[in-house]
């Protein structure tokens, strides 16, 4: 064994900034991947002692059990308010919020829009899987038209339930916002691009350019009642045509 387990054979390892804890996320869920990407970026940038994360209410409420950095756990939707205060009080530190679509795009829309509009120099990681995960499959503001959930059992009727909300496009219109990009983690290629976007956003934060948002189109195998592979197929075929990947706003000259 020892001749196999040796440094020159190492092709992959978990970043030191991720704790040795078993994640509670369902098999195939995108949260674990995004946690790991963010912690890889933190490790590579050497900022483990200089970053504060704000966790939401939702499936990722326990992110502080996995990310080995200082964290605050916010009330539902209020992460950007906490993040605002932390960044204002510690302008030299990195600050990010990690929020799902219910947290950010429903109950926390006000806090998110105003933090963005004030140009708070922080990053929001916005996990959009189009459904409420932790409360078991209710309709989210981002749920696609016609999609069946426990609170839209006959499919989302946009005339009576409203339209799926593209927060990133809205936010990108605000002058205080420096960088908005939409990424996904459903394929290895997309995972690599997502990591690059997270790193870019933190570099812009260091430069004090303004508010940054990295939206990650994710999946929910458990509540969509499908396998992880089918869930990623759903992302590719259903979510991405509506939530188009790529940069929506980049800082001038970048």
């Amino acid at each position: 064994m020892s001749d196999i387990v040796c440094p020159e054979n190492l092709v992959y390892k978990k970043p030191s900034t991720l704790k040795d804890a078993i994640m509670h996320y369902c098999p195939g869920c995108g949260h674990g991947v995004v946690h790991k990407l963010m912690m890889e970026v933190v490790e590579e940038m050497g900022i483990q002692n200089d970053i504060i994360g704000i966790t939401p209410v939702g499936c990722s409420v326990f992110a502080y059990n996995y990310m080995d950095i200082d964290m605050e756990q916010a009330a539902h939707g209020r992460a950007c308010a906490l993040g605002t205060a932390v960044k204002r009080l510690y302008p030299e530190k990195y600050v990010f919020t990690y929020q799902g679509d219910g947290d950010l795009a429903a109950i926390g829309t006000c806090e998110t829009m105003h933090a963005a509009n004030r140009g708070e120099k922080m990053l929001t990681i916005f996990i959009n899987n189009g459904i409420y995960g932790m409360t078991s499959g209710q309709m989210a503001p981002t749920t696609l038209e016609g999609a069946k959930t426990t609170t839209s059992p006959y499919g989302r009727d946009v005339e009576t339930m409203g339209y799926p909300l593209r927060i990133s496009e809205l936010i990108a219109n605000l002058p205080g916002v420096a960088y908005v990009t939409r990424q996904a983690v459903n394929t290895p290629a997309n995972v690599r691009k997502c990591k690059k976007a997270l790193k870019t956003a933190l570099e812009y934060q260091k430069q004090g350019l303004g508010y940054c948002m990295v939206e990650v189109v994710s999946n929910c195998p458990s509540n969509n009642k499908c396998t992880p592979l089918e869930a990623n197929k759903f992302v590719e075929e259903q979510m991405l045509p509506f939530y188009k990947l790529g940069d929506i706003k980049v800082p001038e000259g970048k």
């Binding site: 605050e72 009330a75 209020r78 906490l82 932390v86 204002r88 006000c110």
Partner: peptide
């Protein structure tokens, strides 16, 4: 000292939560 007009009382109290959790007198 930082002074910020929040967008609502809901946001203001959560800014207090964030600042206090980071060890500041708010």
């Amino acid at each position: 000292m930082v002074v910020l007009q929040a967008e609502s009382e809901v946001s203001a109290i959560n800014m207090i939560y964030g600042g206090a959790a980071a060890g500041k007198r708010v």
